[in-house]
Design a protein around this nucleic acid. Structure first.
Ligand SMILES: [Mn+2]
Ligand SMILES: [Mn+2]
Ligand SMILES: [Mn+2]
Ligand SMILES: [Mn+2]
Lengths: 219, 219
DNA sequence: AAAAATATTTAGACAAATCTAAAATTAATT
DNA sequence: AATTAATTTTAGATTTGTCTAAATATTTTT
């Protein structure tokens, strides 16, 4: 139906639009995709012709209903494959993104449905990101970042905002993974770094930024 | 490393060479791949430049050691994914080829190894074709076609030569699958069609050609 | 061994996806 | 409101993989 590049562009637009409510700029897409802005412009014209986006020269783009659907289905496939790689093939959470980046483009409706069933309809991926259902609906849940927890309070890790491999490896070193409990012992007034207790066993110091990337449910 | 098209051409050459011992012709590749002979010639030049094949104009091609390795690894991945699709996702054997045709191109050495382990090192795919191991070695076993069985003798289905979807659906209708027992009741002298007994329960008439496609071990 | 048929390659074209450099537009700063 | 800076688009190329039509080589038939 759509090429790998078309799908990847739609996904990029969707993900950028998720964070900033306004129309998505050419440069932001180029930065996200690691390509030249001129290449993005070419692709935007094509996507606009196919009515997957609304596009006005110099004004940025927004996804059409169809474009949004394609992007969400791609994200759905990506996250289901990540669950497969971690749950079944025992990959670690920092290893799966690149492989899922390829697997998400495999074309077969039936495959996605059977995979989802086989995985017992997971609602979140190995990074804690919600997996849209067949109709594109995401499961919502209330979550806070560790930066928002008050000293003395505890949270259980639900997910991470940052997906960078080096960040995930850093968390591995600290024995932080999904389900880990994090108790905030102390916040430094100066730079908001935090002393935390990990699973009631290991104490560690993390920066404000790291705390911001860690998503928890309060307990 | 290599493009999807390069990989598919190498696989085509390997499969054609398997049947006929001589150098593989441009036209046979074009027929196998459903492309124009001129397109094949272009690709052959590229594969020869990369030293994946030996190629002399008008004389056909043979795979180099490297080319052969790439082809075999592709076949390995294809067949492992087919096992996954049938064993884990419960696809039927006639549904998996097209999907595996895509999955075989996913790039990750680790993925193949983990998949193979997860599937518990299968030696044959859902059509009874051998799965090469990491080093490219195929498991051999003695097998006969049903056409070679004498009346009164019985075989257990090990695989099929023909992979066409309509052929596999025809076998489904006759309740023939891997492991099914086939007893030859009678051979017609005129056209060598056979009356067979399937799993000791169903009698059916099959043509000489169909019998030739069915591979069994003698019991 | 010619002639005819078949197979293969070359020539020239095209679509997709990318790039760099230059031009045009929009946004920010003085 | 000018000027400057930043963003975006256009123009023109390049690579990859494909095609058709014509030319060439090989094989088969007479
Ligand atoms: Mn992708
Ligand atoms: Mn993820
Ligand atoms: Mn393929
Ligand atoms: Mn198979």
């Amino acid at each position: 139906m759509f090429s790998v590049s078309e799908e990847d562009h739609l996904k990029a637009i969707f993900k950028i639009a998720e964070k900033e409510k306004k129309a998505v700029s050419t440069n932001s897409i180029a930065a996200y995709m690691n390509t030249a802005p001129a290449s993005v412009t070419d692709m935007l014209k094509k996507l606009a012709d196919k009515e997957l986006i609304q596009y006005q020269k110099y004004k940025g783009v927004t996804l059409s209903a169809t474009g949004s659907k394609v992007a969400i289905q791609l994200i759905r496939k990506h996250r289901l494959w990540e669950v497969f790689l971690v749950e079944k093939l025992k990959f670690s959470w920092e290893e799966v993104h690149e492989i899922a980046e390829q697997l998400e483009h495999i074309q077969s409706e039936d495959l996605v449905l059977r995979l989802e069933k086989y995985l017992e309809f997971p609602k979140f991926d190995p990074h804690g990101d919600p997996i849209p259902n067949m109709d594109g609906k995401f499961t919502l849940r209330s979550q806070w970042s560790v930066a928002e927890l008050l000293p003395g309070h505890t949270g259980i890790i639900l997910g991470v905002r940052e997906h960078d491999k080096s960040f995930l490896l850093y968390l591995n070193d600290m024995k932080i993974k999904l389900g880990t409990s994090i108790k905030v012992l102390q916040k430094t007034a100066y730079d908001q770094s935090l002393r935390i207790l990990i699973d009631g066993r290991f104490e560690n110091l993390i920066t404000k930024n790291v705390a911001h990337q860690l998503l928890v449910k309060k307990v």
